[in-house]
């Protein structure tokens, strides 16, 4: 009986939180442009993939998709390299002013992202990085960095250092210790960090709208927005594009959920 109630509650919340998504999916399958149709049917009235076809063939969507994938992947790779090395150094070496560095990293997280729009814009224009992927890459990977460094450092702190000592005696240099021992052991923490960086870059809008003005260079969130304004709001296209956009993130979560779960119970299995 207790189980029945908890299932019921879970079901209600699942429907509650997935209904908007379902609705978007619904709209994307309609042949007309009937988003604000009075008849908000639960099942789509028609089953047409026309919107998807148009999105891929008649709009800049493929370009945006390519841009977004490229930027997200590069941000993730660059972000991982930077955060892993920084976190490892902060966890294992006696760095001058370590406490200060860590507090400073945390403090940077206090500022709302919109506050940084203007300074970033000015900096980028000075370095001629406006309308340039590199500019966005630098901003994305640096803004996710503090959180990722903290997260990974806390994880590295839980690893017994004698394992690394053993590897050094066995013949590893410092880099090999990191590559052959620390990284494989830290897979769960790295998966979580990667996911965080990937999703941040994938869905970011405000900064991208400032940096990338050329429609050819825009990312998906910007592209979606342009459906809304320029074409007198093509709801069908908008919905179809939104569904496609949400797929990779969902996929990444499903693939990495194994690590997410083990990542959350870390520390309890030490030794």
């Amino acid at each position: 009986m207790k189980k029945f109630f908890s299932l019921l509650v879970l079901l209600i919340f699942s429907i509650y939180s997935t209904f908007p998504i379902w609705h978007i999916f619904n709209v994307s399958l309609r042949s007309d442009n009937s988003f604000q149709n009075d008849s908000l049917h639960f099942w789509p009235d028609s089953l047409s993939w026309k919107n998807y076809e148009i999105v891929f063939t008649k709009t800049l969507f493929p370009t945006w998709l390519f841009n977004s994938v490229m930027i997200s992947v590069m941000v993730t790779i660059l972000g991982l390299i930077l955060s892993i090395t920084a976190a490892y150094a902060l966890s294992r070496f006696s760095v001058q002013g370590k406490k200060g560095i860590l507090t400073f990293l945390l403090a940077t997280q206090m500022f709302p992202a919109t506050m940084l729009l203007l300074p970033f814009y000015i900096l980028l224009s000075q370095f001629h990085l406006l309308n340039n992927f590199w500019g966005l890459l630098i901003i994305y990977s640096s803004s996710a960095l503090p959180f990722c460094v903290w997260q990974l450092k806390s994880y590295f702190d839980t690893l017994p250092f004698e394992i690394e000592d053993a590897a050094r005696v066995d013949g590893c240099n410092r880099w090999q210790v990191l590559w052959k021992i620390v990284l494989p052991i830290s897979k769960p923490a790295i998966a979580i960090t990667a996911l965080f960086q990937l999703t941040t870059a994938w869905s970011e809008y405000a900064m991208a709208s400032v940096v990338l003005q050329d429609p050819q260079m825009q990312t998906l969130p910007l592209g979606l927005k342009s459906f809304q304004s320029s074409l007198a709001t093509e709801w069908g296209l908008y919905a179809a594009a939104a569904v496609i956009v949400s797929l990779p993130a969902t996929l990444a979560f499903i693939l990495l959920s194994r690590y997410l779960i083990s990542g959350l119970t870390l520390g309890s299995v030490k030794g």
Partner: peptide, 20 residues
Amino acid sequence: VQPKDRGLAMVFQSYALYPH
């Protein structure tokens, strides 16, 4: 001289096996 270049092996009190 780095540990790896000292030509020795060590058995650690805590075993320190590679868990992966």
